[in-house]
Design a protein around this nucleic acid. Structure first.
Length: 438
RNA sequence: GGUGGGGUGGCAGAGUGGUCGAAUGCACCGGUCUUGAAAACCGGCAGUGGGCUUGUCCUACUCGUGGGUUCGAAUCCCACCCCCACCGCCA
């Protein structure tokens, strides 16, 4: 959620943001409704104030009336009756206004939920991923002196992946990980979890079914609703999360933290569910784009301070990089351009890992910074040193997402004989196994 | 799934129609006292929105949520959400 008073002061900034992020929202309509809303609100509040005042006077009279006798009692009764007329008159107009106000608030709130957070000044301007700016590269891209197999082939030959049976049960973009495939998947997740805990993140196991407020709060609703699986039999409706970011960020919903509690750092592994609506025919091969996967996610809640936010953004990015370096997977970091930013993101760094079968770097990580966008929607605040209540800043990044990370892992570590070496970092998590032989 | 009880400030806990946004205690902050600390005492201590005369200002809303009754609702009525206890079922 953006700050409405900021939008009033500088609507142009939000019009530009909407254009840059290609989000369709009528800023002028918001300004119009807001002005109307405040006008009616003021009128209504004046009426309510008068009504309340008379009510209070009656309240003072009531005990007197109780004790009074004879003429005095009659007099007071009459006075009371007379006084009671005024609030009744006022109430009609008050209710009229209340109806009008309600009629404005719902479309206004709906529009406000669509307004994007403006990107940070430093973000490269652009329309799509071709405008993303590469910041750095790490590692040597492996040149094969034999014909390499892709992960689907490797997975089938080594009994690690069974896509056919996954599809048989659950339809397109579904899969089984089998045998050593399932082990490798668990190993890489556990390594990631342990490493990030080592950086001071609190391990969590969150719910993956959430109610709507968590999704609205984190900014996935209303705009991303069609990407989310809904359990419509439940009342209230439950949704499967697409990332542990949703429950982790919502953990402190409607709370006021103490400044000394910040920063809050959490990590969770969760299954992630994504409908991938509108991607028919895109990335249909293998385990790149699938409906269900597992991910270790890191989130940070920090003070309302831009410098500090940026610092955390760099840090959570570096934690992911360290992990890829430990796994010796070549990657690059890109500064994602304005057109590719989500509604609430002010800046985003993606890590793309080299995937031989795609002959390109493919996105494996995404580190986002929101400033107070999510905290406003989730109402996550803290009391600062001066006792002032402020919205937190929030950030998140992938630590590892699997099986997508198995694509580079399997393809880059393959040998001419069809076997796969297991990276040193993973062997302890594979019960000492160093190689996956045919 | 069934039955019963209950949701009040950071926490505990009073309040069952009338200046109640709410007693009291704890916690917290400031002060007095003290060499210092503790104790004691004094004072402060919710959030959000609107207005303009931007003030130690006015005002509205908030006692789980949303409606209703009433001149007036934390208090009465209805619906929903949640929690607790017991029973049934169960990984």
């Amino acid at each position: 959620m953006i700050d409405l008073s900021q939008l009033r002061d500088n609507p142009e900034r939000f019009r530009d943001a909407a254009a840059a992020k290609r989000i369709n929202v009528d800023i002028d309509q918001i300004l119009k409704l807001d002005a109307e809303h405040r006008k009616l609100l003021t009128e209504q509040q004046q009426i309510t104030a008068e009504k309340n005042m008379v009510g209070r006077q009656i309240g003072q009279l009531a005990p007197q009336l109780k004790n009074a006798v004879g003429d005095e009692k009659l007099e007071l009764q009459q006075k009371m009756k007379q006084m009671q007329q005024r609030p009744t008159q006022l109430k009609q107009r008050e209710q009229e206004l209340s109806k009008l106000i309600g009629g404005i608030e719902s479309p206004l709130n709906d529009l406000l939920l669509h307004v994007p957070q403006p990107p940070d000044q430093t973000v490269p301007v652009g329309a799509d991923d071709s405008d993303n700016v590469e910041l750095r590269k790490w590692g040597e891209v492996r040149k094969f002196d034999f014909e390499p197999k892709d992960h689907v082939r490797l997975g089938r030959d080594l009994g690690m992946i069974d896509i056919e049976r996954g599809v048989k049960l659950s339809g397109t973009r579904s899969y089984f990980l089998t045998g050593r495939g399932a082990l490798l998947h668990q190993a890489v997740l556990r390594l990631a979890f342990d490493r990030i805990c080592g950086h001071g993140f609190k391990p969590m196991t969150p719910p993956v079914m959430v109610r709507q407020p968590a999704l609205v709060g984190t900014g996935y609703f209303p705009l991303g609703r069609d990407q989310t699986y809904a359990m419509t039999n439940e009342d209230p409706e439950l949704f499967l999360v697409g990332t542990a970011e949703v429950p982790l960020m919502s953990y402190h919903m409607d709370e006021i933290l103490d400044e000394t509690d910040l920063p809050r750092r959490y990590v969770a592994q969760s299954s992630c569910f994504r409908r991938e609506a509108g991607t028919y025919g895109k990335d249909t091969h293998g385990l790149y784009r699938i409906h269900q996967f597992d991910k270790v996610e890191q989130v940070v809640l920090c003070k309302n301070d831009i410098i500090e936010s940026k610092g955390w953004h760099e840090k959570i990015l570096s934690y992911a990089e360290q992990l890829l370096q430990e796994l010796k997977l070549p990657y690059r970091v890109v500064d994602v351009c304005t057109g590719e930013l989500g509604q609430g993101q002010v800046a985003k760094f993606d890590i793309e890992t080299w995937m031989p079968s795609r002959e390109s770097y493919g996105e494996t990580h995404s580190a986002s910074r929101f400033y107070d966008f999510q905290a406003r929607r989730l109402n996550v605040r803290y009391r600062d040193g001066q006792g002032k209540v402020q919205f937190c800043h929030s950030l998140n990044n992938t630590v590892i997402a699997s099986p997508r990370i198995l694509i580079p892992l399997m393809e880059l570590y393959q040998n001419p004989d069809g076997s796969i070496c297991i990276p040193k970092a993973l062997t302890p998590y594979m019960n000492g196994m160093e190689k996956i032989d045919p």
